[in-house]
């Protein structure tokens, strides 16, 4: 068990280091920040002075070392535009994104798992067919289209919901629903097929032979066995959803990380882009680590490896 945890932790650290290298290199490939900052009419001395100030004249390896050791201390540099620490900017926006992603994720997961289980218990029923149609649409319709259609119907025509912005739960409905629909579809399909597999197993028959009530056969014996693919899918969906917030936040003017990243890219504010990429990756790696721990909790065969 401890070996398993230690191994996963080590893998996570290596992963973060790898990501930091990629982010560092990519940020430097987009052009000389000093040039960008000062504009086309800048004088050479100014450019050189700025480069020296930011350490851009040092060898790459030294620059990377500075970057990573600062990052470990929570310092990812200053935003070129806001002249504020980007870490603070990122953390300031994080709650908004977490709220949007969290609510969408909760809706998507509950709807996907419950719907998938019901569909698997009665394959071929009207519910199963409805679920199939709804999830097919959810997967194939792009989120921006859903968003625009929703805005037109519920905000522009009916005036039931605000078009964009944040503040009340009513602001949350359309963006959360848009994201949830797209990601519940995958969870529904996966849960259905995982449950169908498990329900065929001999141990399910044995549970019935023992006289276990049907709801318990499904909720205890079958669901726990289907949980590994379900949890994997949930984690994957959370990450897809988190990335999806980039578009949704932009459409609904939701002041989260996604929007911060888009603004950063448009303003060529490279420390902001760099921080968003790095921190989001760290978040994803942390989620993966948590999922690995969850596997061990669910399945004793992993725990006793």
């Amino acid at each position: 068990m401890w070996r398993y945890i230690l191994k996963r932790l080590l893998q996570a650290v290596i992963c973060i280091l790898g990501v930091s290298v990629i982010v560092f290199v990519l940020a430097r490939l987009t052009g000389d920040p000093a040039l960008v900052m000062l504009g086309p009419g800048a004088r050479l001395e100014d450019i050189l002075a700025l480069r020296q100030k930011w350490g851009l004249d040092l060898p790459m390896i030294v620059q990377y070392w500075r970057f990573i050791s600062n990052a470990v201390h929570g310092d990812l540099g200053l935003s070129l535009r806001y002249h504020a620490p980007v870490m603070a900017l990122w953390l300031g926006r994080l709650p908004n994104t977490l709220l949007l992603a969290g609510v969408s994720f909760a809706i998507a997961t509950v709807a996907g798992v419950v719907g998938g289980v019901i569909a698997a218990v009665k394959p071929g029923s009207w519910f199963d067919r409805l679920g199939k149609t709804v999830s097919f649409l959810g997967i194939s319709v792009p989120v921006f289209l859903t968003a625009i259609v929703l805005i037109i119907i519920f905000a522009v025509k009916l005036h039931w919901l605000p078009v964009y912005g944040t503040g009340t739960w009513r602001h949350l409905i359309m963006p959360a629903f848009t994201l949830a629909w797209a990601s519940s579809a995958g969870q529904l399909r996966l849960t259905r097929s995982a449950m169908l597999d498990v329900l065929d197993a001999e141990y399910i028959k044995l549970a019935r032979v023992k006289g276990v009530p049907e709801y318990k056969v499904i909720a205890k014996h079958a669901l726990k066995n289907a949980l590994i693919p379900i949890v994997t899918m949930a984690a994957l969906q959370f990450m897809v959803l988190f990335s999806g917030t980039v578009i949704i936040e932009f459409i609904f003017a939701w002041p989260g990380i996604g929007w911060l990243a888009v603004e950063g890219a448009r303003n060529r504010d490279f420390p902001v882009v760099q921080a968003c990429a790095l921190m989001t990756s760290v978040l994803f790696i942390a989620i993966n680590l948590a999922v690995d721990m969850l596997y061990a909790y669910i399945d004793p065969r992993i725990r006793y490896q």
Partner: peptide
């Protein structure tokens, strides 16, 4: 009425 199923190797639930 109890029954012992055909394949005992897989008739116990692996996660309990």
């Amino acid at each position: 009425v109890s029954m012992i199923l055909q394949d005992p190797m897989v008739s116990l639930n692996p996660v309990f």
